[in-house]
Design a protein around this nucleic acid. Sequence first.
DNA 1: ACTGGGGCTAACC
DNA 2: GGGTTAGCCCCAG
Length: 117
Amino acid sequence: MPPASDAWRRIYAVVRRIPRGRVATYGQVAWVAGLPRQARLVGYAMHAAGESTTVPWHRVVNASGGISARAEGPGGSVLQRLRLEREGVGFDTRGRIPLERYGWRPRGWPPPRERAD
DNA sequence: ACTGGGGCTAACC
DNA sequence: GGGTTAGCCCCAG
């Protein structure tokens, strides 16, 4: 069972909001959950979420629109792709998802650059 | 408290 | 665009 920390719950809450047929990146989920720069924590949480089917973990991909390899092996990656294709998410010839087309765009996304001037 | 790692990323070759 | 290098921050020994 994953840690019952508030951060994890917020992450799962955000992932549950990702619409069917869309995908979000780890960093994006972290940001929307109010946890900027904690993309890895999201990945960690997704890893643990595999046990509970209540969260659509398959809609979270890396910043390149690709499916990240996991410690368990390639099996999960294949399952993730299958689930996404079943929802209508398309992959290019390189096996990556065009985020400009299937990426989730919640309100306030993308975040304003901090200290950009 | 410390160390090693992780379903990550942006920055640089 | 791919391959590598640093940061990132939290979690588990």
